[in-house]
Amino acid sequence: MRFQLTEDQRALRAGTRELLARRFGPEALRAAVEEPRLDRGLWRELGAAGFFALRLPEADGGVGLGLPEAVLVFEEAGRALLPGPLVATHLAAGQVQGADTGETVVAAVDGSLVEWLAEADTVRGDATGAEPLHSVDPLTPLHAVRPSPAAPEAPAAALLAAPEDPAAAPLTAPEDPVAALLTAAEQLGTAGRVGELAVRHARAREQFGQPIGAFQAVKHLCADMLARTEIARVAVYAAAVTGDPLDIAGARLLADEAAVRGARDCLQVHGGMGFTWECDVHLHLKRAWVRAQRGVPATVRARELADALLADSVVQGSGLR
């Protein structure tokens, strides 16, 4: 057991962070907020760096890496608030022409929402009659679609029905678990980033003659942010190693919580500045809200995890390795 990043994984993380800092730094971020267009040049550069083809076999022109590496890269994308239908395009690599190289931008219908529909070259799922929403996140254009009568009915019904024997037939969510995991990785990136922003502000901002970070009430907010991030981190990384849908469901719950709660606490630590448009904190919070809506609702994930408790392996203590 070596449940730590390998040297190669550290290098991949550092390389991705460096690329994103260079191509999507603070100024690019603010420019994108004022004019939310997809930067095709950046998209192709991501493609060239292997962002989309990361998990395709080398024989098919991919990088030949796995979910653990994908999770590290998406964590960095989350940290940087990188805009665009990243998960949809990554999942389309090898299936939609040009997705792997970043030539084709792929959006996907997710429940009743589509992110980046107008900018995409291809849409997966039925987006007929999609109407633009006034998106809460200035960096994620959203369209609303009516759920098509054919597709999502069956899985939704299966979810609502009480399982006869959940131990024998564990519920699987009507979503791609990899999409849920990559979203969790992005949320993890946000959780880590807002924690850093909060700490940086708490060290610099002085009131009553000392940095506000010297006050225990502020300290404890920051400590809890770190704890939520680190518990989510191991859950996301482990889920990437096992690929187990239950691990993914749990990781997603913890990562959503770490991102949304963390961004809220970060805003609180920033005080009045946190309530301004100029401060980046609201961008992290709004993106975390958008991502939290992807896939099945949190209540469904929690129920899936509850139902799994009835399996024999849990009471026998052999459920986890």
Binding site: M1, R2, I231, A235, L253, L305, A306, D307
Partner: peptide, 28 residues
């Protein structure tokens, strides 16, 4: 109640992973 049990399941699974992470770190 089921939701609470599900959230606790997620939490304790993650605590097991954190244990494995910490032990791996100590080992390395």
């Amino acid at each position: 109640l089921r939701r609470r049990l599900g959230l606790l399941h997620a939490e304790f699974r993650a605590l097991w992973r954190l244990t494995q992470w910490n032990v791996s770190e100590a080992q390395a």
